[in-house]
Computed example of a mutant assay.
Amino acid sequence: MKTDFSPSDIDAIYRVIAARRDMRHFAGGSVDEATLRRLLEAAHHAPSVGFMQPWRFIRIRKPALRDQLYQLVQAEIQQSAEALGERGEEFLQLKVEGIRDCAELLVVALCDQRQRYIFGRRTLPEMDLASAACAIQNLWLAARAENLGMGWVSLFEPEPLKQLLNMPAGSQPIALLCLGPVTEFYDRPMLESEHWDQRRALDNLIMEDGWQADGRPDDDANG
């Protein structure tokens, strides 16, 4: 099957990629069921190694359960701040989640019994995680195209979260996704705006025919 895309179609893809942001500030509201279904269909059309489709999506509907997940994240925020040492206080000033404010909260997990998927994973078993990350990126870009914000939260201990959600042995939660309407999208990545780090210059990340040392300073970055 051959599908040709118009110049405006191509431009839209690149504009959505450039406009995607990891959102932490949400405006409440809701995501209608048809839109949510479209987003999850987009995620489910992601590539996966050996066509294993390891992603599983858990929609959190109960307010009490959402609050329990929020508490797990808050506990890890404190642990991360301690691990960051001298940057700990700076980290605590950042808004790193929108769990209580977003319209929808989704948990993304890797399925159990993944060891039976050998194709493409014999030497690189982490390709299940790479595949699920592709699904999350699909959902992220589709959400941005629908003018919905999304944020990926990875600040949690996996085992307590698994217990809360009655997940089977061998499964692995990898993301809390905050999804919903936002007042506005950030002009730049929030962590860049907050001077946590900066986007590196692409030319410093491209090599040819082998690994080459990066001799150019990061302050050449084209934010």
Rank of each mutant, 00 (worst) to 15 (best):
M1L: 13
K2S: 14
D4V: 07
F5Q: 01
S6C: 07
D9E: 12
I13T: 08
I13D: 01
A18H: 12
H25F: 08
A27P: 02
S30E: 09
D32N: 15
R37T: 08
L39P: 00
L39T: 02
A43H: 08
A43E: 04
H45P: 00
V49C: 07
P54H: 11
F57P: 05
P63S: 06
P63W: 00
Q71H: 05
L72W: 00
V73H: 14
I77E: 08
I77K: 12
A81G: 07
L84Y: 08
G85P: 08
E86M: 03
G98F: 10
G98T: 12
R100S: 09
D101I: 01
E104H: 05
V108G: 01
L110K: 10
L110G: 11
Q115T: 07
R116A: 07
R116V: 09
Y117W: 14
F119Q: 09
T123V: 15
P125Y: 03
P125W: 03
M127E: 11
L129Y: 15
A130H: 14
S131T: 03
N138R: 03
A143M: 01
R144H: 13
G149V: 01
M150H: 03
W152Y: 03
L155Q: 11
L155E: 06
P158R: 02
P158Y: 00
P158G: 06
L164D: 05
M167R: 02
P168Y: 02
P168H: 01
A169R: 07
S171L: 10
Q172A: 14
L176N: 02
L176G: 05
L179W: 08
G180I: 07
P181F: 14
T183Q: 11
T183K: 13
Y186A: 15
M190K: 03
E194Y: 05
Q198W: 04
R200E: 14
L202D: 09
L202Q: 09
N204G: 02
L205K: 06
E208F: 14
G210F: 07
Q212T: 11
A213D: 06
G215Q: 12
D218Q: 12
D219R: 15
D219C: 15
D220A: 07
G223F: 12
